[in-house]
Design a binder for these strands. Structure first.
Length: 134
DNA sequence: CTTCTGACA
DNA sequence: TGTCAGGA
């Protein structure tokens, strides 16, 4: 269990994380706003990221590159929501839950969300949210 | 010098 | 998302 402690230990400042992830400070802060990471803060309000945070950011980056939008990324990475979506995907495939490995679920989920992200623009105002649907 | 928040010619 | 301001 000490590995868990290390991975969640607040270690590096913004500058280091920017280089390690190839992400801009703007993007990193934006993902934090969306609860994708929860870095600690120093007494001076400076962010301190853990190895776990680095992993998360890298995953977010990959998912986004695959064409998935923030809404999709959040569904995949946010703990609780994750369980539900996984169940839905398993059911949608008409297969018993325990017949799927985590890898298979990841694959199905990604495919599903790539399409969802292509038509459902959560970042657009309510009225235009589906303008790319037709 | 580095990072933070808020804002948008 | 970039970038600038103004402060810590």
């Amino acid at each position: 269990m000490s590995n868990k402690i290390r991975r969640s230990m607040p270690l590096f400042p913004m500058g280091t994380v920017m280089k390690l992830t190839e992400l801009s400070a703007r993007q990193i802060r934006y993902y934090e706003e969306h609860q994708l990471i929860r870095p600690e803060r120093t007494e001076g309000n400076r962010r301190l990221f853990s190895l776990y945070d680095i992993d998360r950011l890298l995953e977010v980056k990959d998912l986004l590159d695959e064409g998935i939008n923030m809404a999709g990324v959040k569904k995949i990475l946010l703990q609780e929501e994750n369980k539900e979506v996984h169940s839905n995907v398993k059911e949608a495939a008409g297969k018993d839950k325990k017949d799927f490995t985590n890898e298979e679920v990841r694959k199905l989920l990604r495919k599903e969300l790539i399409n969802a992200g292509r038509f459902h623009r959560d970042d657009l105002p309510p009225g235009e949210r589906y303008r790319y649907f037709h």
